[in-house]
Amino acid sequence: MRTERNLTRLDRVFARLDREPERPAHLDVPRMSRHRVALLAGTLLFYLAIVWLVVDTSWLVRLDWQVMFFRPYQQWSEIHWFVDYYVVLGQRGPTAVMVAAWLGWRSWRQHTLRPLLTLGASLLLLNITVGAAKIGMGRLGPHYATTIGSNEMGLGGDIFPSGHTANAVVTWGILAYLASTPRARRWLSAVSAVTSLGVGLATVYLGTHWLSDVMLGWTAGLLVLLALPWCEPLITRAETAIFDLRDRWRARRALPTAVKPVEVPVPLKPRTAPQSEPAARSGRAPAYLAPGPHTTRSERTPVTPVGPRRPPHPDRVARGTASAARPLTGG
């Protein structure tokens, strides 16, 4: 009696790596529900509150200066090497490459471009919103501060909000946003939250950002993730347009090469001797024909020749007559 072999963990991994025969129908696309809208509104209010506290040079600015004077990179210098490597998880270039590689495999396996298009839309939205806020507020970082206790706003800086922190929230949070099961979404949400929290604290440890910069970076990244469902119709239209373009290109390549039609030469009609206009009108024969009635060859009576066809010869004798004896010569 044969029993089925139990699948090992390695077998399940290789089965997971195989490409699905068609696009799965259970892909969950997040919707802009009332709960998400309320969360988005609350996050936006928190964003504006942080900006107001910094502009007003409130207790949050005083906390920024206290943390800066504490100099964490000197207090815990033994972990400096680890923080230098860990903060790379918030840089836009390396993280975008790693996440795009994973989402590219997801796109190939599930026959859809939605993961890659969603990543592109989120990074575009992040660069526009965070970049505009950085340039608009122009805050200087701790290493370039000029006046103790000031908010350092409007001095041509570009650190408020923290780009590393916001990029970590969006880049790693997009994995939870695109998760296909609720369990995977919960686990990936926890991992992305811990990763982005660590990246933000790493920038404070290194002294490249104020604590308020990191708080605003977390909020800015969360706003991008919460607003992504509004981009889903545009992502769907872009995916449909790309697939239509691919199908037309494949159909154009599959067409056989056009065969040029062979021109069959048309036989030319034999030229007839031109007749002069007066002769045609009068009914007379042309000048080069002898006068008199003329008939065609088929209308003539055949003439049978009489007698032999050979010309007469003096030495020939007609058949049926006796030939005269030839004289003998000699003795």
Rank of each mutant, 00 (worst) to 15 (best):
L27I: 15
R253A: 15
T165Q: 02
T165N: 01
S196E: 01
R281S: 13
V29N: 03
P293F: 04
L197I: 13
P229K: 02
P267E: 10
L216I: 05
L328A: 11
A193K: 00
G156V: 06
L17C: 05
L53G: 06
L228E: 07
Q91K: 10
S77N: 09
D56F: 05
D213H: 07
L124H: 01
V204H: 13
V67I: 15
S196H: 02
I174R: 02
W187F: 12
G221E: 09
L39T: 01
V99W: 03
E299K: 09
L60G: 11
W76H: 10
W210V: 12
S33C: 01
G93S: 04
A254F: 06
D64N: 14
T165Y: 02
L45S: 12
A318P: 04
A322I: 03
F160R: 07
A202V: 09
R284S: 11
E78A: 07
G138H: 07
P314D: 02
Y86V: 10
R71K: 12
I79S: 06
H35P: 00
L234S: 10
V13L: 15
L117F: 14
L206D: 08
I79A: 10
R109I: 02
H35R: 13
V97Y: 06
H294K: 04
L116P: 02
D84C: 08
G163N: 07
K260W: 15
V306Q: 02
L103I: 02
R31E: 15
G141P: 06
I159W: 05
P311T: 13
E299A: 15
F243K: 01
L268K: 10
I235T: 07
T203P: 01
T219R: 01
P270W: 06
P256A: 14
